[in-house]
Amino acid sequence: MKLNHPTGQAAENRALVFLQEQGCRLIARNWHCPHGEIDLIVQQGNILIFVEVKYRKSSAFGGAAYSIVPSKLAKLQRSAEYYLQINQLNTMCRLDAVLLQGNESPQWIQNITG
């Protein structure tokens, strides 16, 4: 699916380039299911990574990290489980976030589910 908002698309592009520089390979982008959307699905080595990309102009009002609320996290978990189920995958995986704030370097938070 194509992003309609140029800022969101630019943030995802920036996050993808960053992840590729870290050795990740793109599997899917803007993957949709009945539970929600996963911004990026990448693979690094033998680990499948479901990535939520969050952009904020600044750290005001908590910044990008504070926009991943518990209800959003639950949707991401259900979406990732659904992806694994419909693709019949039994592989190591995790849920990560790439946070972008203004022109700062991307922040990669691994295993946001704890």
Rank of each mutant, 00 (worst) to 15 (best):
K2Y: 13
L3D: 07
N4Q: 11
N4G: 11
P6H: 10
T7M: 12
T7Y: 09
G8K: 11
A11P: 11
A11C: 11
N13P: 11
N13K: 15
N13E: 15
N13G: 15
N13T: 14
R14L: 13
R14T: 14
A15Q: 12
A15F: 12
A15N: 13
L16C: 14
F18D: 03
L19W: 11
Q20C: 09
Q20W: 06
Q20K: 14
E21A: 07
E21L: 11
C24I: 03
C24D: 07
R25H: 08
R25C: 04
I27E: 14
A28M: 12
R29T: 14
N30V: 06
N30F: 10
N30E: 14
W31T: 11
W31K: 14
C33Y: 11
P34R: 05
H35D: 13
H35N: 09
G36C: 07
E37M: 06
I38G: 07
I38A: 06
I38D: 06
L40P: 10
L40H: 12
I41P: 09
I41N: 13
V42Y: 11
V42T: 12
Q43D: 12
Q43K: 15
Q43M: 15
Q44T: 00
Q44G: 01
N46I: 05
L48N: 08
L48H: 06
I49R: 07
I49S: 04
E52H: 06
E52R: 03
V53L: 02
V53T: 05
Y55L: 05
Y55M: 05
R56G: 06
R56T: 12
K57L: 12
K57Q: 14
K57M: 10
S59G: 14
G63Q: 05
A65I: 02
Y66E: 15
Y66L: 14
S67C: 09
S67M: 08
S67R: 11
S67N: 09
I68W: 04
I68S: 06
V69A: 06
P70Y: 02
S71N: 12
S71R: 10
A74S: 02
L76T: 00
L76C: 01
R78F: 06
R78C: 03
S79L: 03
A80R: 03
E81I: 01
E81R: 01
E81D: 02
Y82N: 03
Y83P: 03
L84I: 00
Q85P: 00
Q85T: 01
I86H: 09
N87T: 10
L89F: 05
L89G: 04
N90C: 07
N90G: 01
T91L: 14
M92W: 05
C93D: 01
C93S: 07
C93W: 09
R94K: 05
R94M: 00
D96C: 00
A97N: 03
A97C: 10
V98N: 02
V98R: 04
V98Y: 01
L99G: 01
L99N: 00
L99I: 00
L100N: 04
Q101I: 01
G102C: 00
G102W: 06
N103V: 03
N103K: 09
N103R: 08
N103T: 10
E104A: 07
S105H: 02
P106A: 01
Q107E: 05
W108D: 01
I109D: 03
N111H: 10
I112T: 13
I112W: 14
G114A: 07
G114I: 04
G114H: 08
G114P: 06
